[in-house]
Write a protein that binds this DNA or RNA. Structure first.
Length: 879
DNA sequence: AACCTCACG
DNA sequence: ACGTACGTGAGGTTG
């Protein structure tokens, strides 16, 4: 069998992988995307080529000949970003752990080592494949040496392959001549100067004609065009030097032998442990069973009533337990862990002796007796438990983990185990698929048992590390006093739901359809063709190519057809306002009219979900459906609020904070002017206008007030001149002037914002008034944009987050007050700075008092909190 | 699944 | 020179 040698251009592939994959870190904060990408590419080629030998070449860090020589020639070679730099030693170690030989030599580039090795390999009778992201290596192609260049585009990875003939076909020169082409045209990225004025076209033409640089010079009189001739004459020395630089050395010292490069067992213990630390789960799967030392819990199944009683009785005497509850249809399971790896699994599948009520009662009892009962997502189980805001033993693992790092997308047991116990467990997603469901035929599957076992075990194991971390970050009060009670308020809102008049909603939708069809016809007529107006792609082509409208702006994939673009040309073409209206109406129809209708339950109410572990700032999020983005700004959309109705005998009371974020800013910054303005209950936007424009309050025009309002908003968002200029449609210079003047008038605000950015940089996170943290990894990024973003986040998060804390407190207190007093009125919705109460008519005044009281006193700030309350027979009227 | 667009605070 | 306002969720199209 023929021997095959696979050579990998380490730096080049690592580089490709780094830029090809989104930023990624393991739980230690080590960047890992380049290493993962590299390994994936390597495995892909190993599988495709099935080589007998393998080696990877790297540049050594020391500056090499080429770069030293031209370090000043064309600026400096771009240093690699830190996020990539830290991954270089990692991939080397991983490869070494896999027994893959590395070729590295001071004074030689990876290119030179690859070139030399490929020549040696070919001479020794190998078929040679070189994998690189770099076209420079094409000069190494022969009939036996193939250069393979993987390219990532959308769709996946495509590989360009080059034997000698392929180079000739694509570039019209042989691999050796390719060097001369490069000597003429130069290569900025490689600091090869080339000959000025000669680009790829001319270079190729000259080399096709003269074969080499030297020969072209020898026949300088025949060189055309004139510019090339003159420059070649003048810069010939530079050309010779460029050729030298462009030539890959084929006589470099090679430290490894073919014997060493022989492909052996990649899947070593060391490699396994390294990959585990890198948290490359998918790659770990390649390792054989022996290496898969997956941690397993010992599950003991209990179906006997007496035994169950006994276990729960004994458990109740202990301090801590971890529990997992799973329900599907009529069956229900409970996993319980109190120590070690032993997990009891109680099931009431079908006709067991254990019942659902029994198990919930037992769990409830544990909450009364034990110090800590740990579970994930406790809110999902509250309907069956009697625990309440006062229950001290509730330990919600998901909530605790969210507070410690609110940036994660999931808080499942495997995430918790990895982050707080350094354990790599198979995830729910890995254990469950279509072939392996959680439950089949009413019986909990092996995968299901495993998952529940892990959940109970991890929940208990996580109590200490999570508590310690919360204490260390001084977030225990936030957890106990705000988040746990908030969980109950959210659960109450989910259970209550909000009444929607489905008939009125249907009528609203029907009324839209008529107008949508009219608009569609007019648009087709205007465009002179029929197309899918909902497709931005088709719409862009119709508007800016077929109809040749001006004002086209491109996005990555085509033309932008966003409102900002269309509004600019709204008055020039009749089709544009039609499209804008069409967009508006179809949005209302699909997302709201039809969308909401799908969620109306048998009780004629929509029971949306309120999520507590989603946002980075501590806000609540709303899904299935989203009840926090029901239209209000435009009248037509706002009308949909007429279908949200209180029950008979009730009215809506809607209370919202007035400018809570600006008030928070006044408090946090301690700016006396701002504080004073709020103490005096002044019109804050007019006041800002007066300060910024240097005019008396009563001379502020409406335009000036509007602009000042935008500045105030901008401050909260982490102001940029660009953003403000966009919003106000003024020049960036003008916007910058507003900002400068604002900060001159409110110096403490400036100090505060700068201070937050500083804190973010030193601590890695910023905090709210109630110690909620928001980590900002972007502040450490080497990417300008990312860092900028991080700075804005550092300015915004303490403000938005503190406001979120305050309304959570108010929400909890209002909800508890209504429950304590056993009132009929109930809290239905929270929309960031607003609470909606379905208020019994007999309780109207009392509820209003409660709202005022609890909302205004939720936090004590340097400025008063102020609220607006409205009432109505529908949400529309109450706003 | 990614992108665009747009609804809200 | 870079290309941006902060925080969300959903529907439609397209690959």
């Amino acid at each position: 069998m023929e021997q095959k040698l696979l050579l990998i251009d380490g730096n080049s592939i690592l580089n490709r992988a780094f830029y090809g994959l989104p930023d990624m870190t393991n739980s230690q904060g080590l960047h890992t995307n380049a290493v993962l990408g590299f390994l994936n590419i390597m495995f892909k080629f190993l599988e495709e080529e099935n080589p007998t030998h393998l080696a990877v070449a790297f540049d050594l860090k020391a500056p090499t000949f080429r770069h030293k020589m031209f370090a000043d020639y064309k600026g400096t070679r771009k240093g690699m970003p830190d996020e990539l730099r830290e991954q270089v030693p990692v991939i080397r170690e991983v490869l070494q752990a896999m027994n893959i030989p590395l070729m590295m030599k001071e004074g030689y580039e990876a290119d030179d080592l690859l070139g030399t090795m490929s020549v040696l390999g070919e001479e020794a009778g190998f078929e040679v494949k070189i994998v690189s992201g770099d076209r420079d290596l094409l000069q190494l192609a022969t009939k036996k040496v193939q250069i393979r260049i993987p390219k990532t585009n959308r769709a996946g990875t495509v590989v360009e392959d080059y034997y000698e003939d392929d180079v000739l076909e694509k570039y019209q020169v042989t691999p050796k001549e390719f060097i001369d082409v490069k000597a003429l045209m130069g290569d900025a990225s490689d600091n090869i100067p080339g000959i000025p004025g000669i680009g790829e076209k001319t270079a190729t033409k000259l080399i096709k004609e003269f074969k080499t640089l030297e020969n072209a010079y020898a026949h300088i009189d025949e060189v055309k065009p004139n510019r090339a001739k003159n420059n070649l004459q003048e810069y010939y020395d530079q050309g010779v030097m460029s050729k030298e630089l462009a030539t890959i050395k084929l006589d470099s010292p090679i430290d490894i032998t073919f014997e060493e490069a022989k492909l052996g067992n990649l899947y070593t213990k060391e490699a396994y442990h390294m990959l585990k630390e890198l948290e490359f789960k998918a790659i770990l799967k390649r390792f054989d069973g022996e290496e898969q030392e997956d941690f397993e819990v010992k599950i003991k199944e209990i179906v006997d009533l007496a035994e169950a009683e006994d276990i729960f009785a004994k458990t109740a005497k202990k301090k801590e337990a971890g529990i997992s509850i799973y329900k599907e249809n009529d069956a229900m399971w409970v996993a319980l862990n109190t120590e070690g790896e032993e997990v009891y699994l109680f099931s009431c599948e079908g006709f067991g002796f254990l019942t659902e009520d029994f198990l919930y009662e037992k769990v409830d009892h544990l909450y009364q007796k034990m110090e800590h009962v740990a579970m994930m997502e406790v809110k999902e189980h509250l309907s069956h438990l009697t625990i309440n805001e006062m229950t001290k033993s509730i330990f919600d693992v998901s909530l605790a983990a969210y507070l410690i790092n609110p940036l994660k997308s999931t808080y499942e047991y495997d995430d918790i185990a990895r982050d707080y116990k350094s354990m790599m467990l198979p995830s729910r997603k890995e254990l469950i698929d279509k072939k392996h469901p959680m439950v089949s035929d009413g019986v909990l599957s092996d995968a299901g048992k495993k998952i529940m076992g892990y959940e109970a075990y991890v929940a208990r194991e996580a109590i200490k590390p999570l508590s310690n971390k919360l204490t260390e970050l001084e977030m225990m009060d936030l957890y106990r006093e705000i988040e746990i009670p908030t969980m109950f308020a959210l659960h109450d809102m989910e259970v209550r739901g909000i009444h929607v008049d489905s008939k009125a909603l249907k009528e609203y939708g029907d009324q839209l359809v008529g107008r949508i069809e009219e608009l569609q016809d007019s648009i087709y007529k205007e465009a002179g063709e029929e197309f899918n107006i909902n497709s931005p792609k088709q719409l862009g082509v119709v508007l800016f190519e077929h109809m040749k409208l001006e004002g086209a702006k491109k996005t990555k994939t085509g033309y932008s057809t966003s409102v900002e673009v269309l509004e600019k040309i709204e008055h020039l073409y009749p089709i544009i306002p039609m499209i804008l209206e069409y967009r508006q109406l179809t949005k209302l129809k699909s997302t709201y009219a039809d969308g909401l209708a799908n969620f109306i339950q048998d009780d004629q109410r929509i029971h949306g979900k309120f999520n507590q572990t989603i946002t980075a700032t501590g806000r609540i999020s709303s899904t299935e459906p989203n009840l926090q983005n029901i239209p209000i700004r435009m009248e037509l959309g706002r009308a949909i609020r007429k279908v949200f109705l209180p029950e008979d005998g009730y009215v809506f009371l809607d209370a919202d904070y007035s400018q809570i974020e600006l008030r928070v800013l006044a408090h946090l910054s301690e700016d006396e002017k701002l504080i004073h303005a709020y103490e005096e209950n002044q019109d804050i936007h007019a006041r800002t206008a007066s300060e910024v424009f240097g005019i008396p309050m009563d001379e502020v025009t409406s335009t000036q007030r509007r602009e000042a309002k935008a500045v105030n908003f901008g401050i909260i968002y982490g102001l940029s001149a660009f953003g403000l200029s966009q919003d106000l449609k003024i020049s960036r210079k003008q916007a910058q002037e507003y900002i400068d003047r604002y900060f001159a008038m409110y110096p403490r605000v400036k100090e505060f914002l700068d201070g937050e950015v500083e804190k973010g940089k030193t601590d890695g996170y910023v905090k709210t008034m109630f110690n909620r943290i928001r980590p900002i990894p972007e502040l450490k990024s080497s990417n300008f944009m990312q860092r900028n973003f991080g700075e804005r986040v550092a300015m915004n998060s303490p403000i938005q987050g503190t406001a979120a804390d305050i309304i959570k407190i108010a929400m909890v207190r209002v909800n508890m007050k209504l429950k304590e007093k056993q009132m009929k009125s109930r809290l239905l919705l929270q929309i960031h700075d607003e609470l909606l109460i379905e208020t019994h008519v007999d309780e109207f005044d009392e509820v209003k008092e409660i709202l005022k009281n609890e909302m205004m006193n939720a936090a004590s700030l340097r400025v008063p909190l102020s609220i607006d309350i409205e009432q109505g027979a529908s949400w529309y009227e109450a706003k």
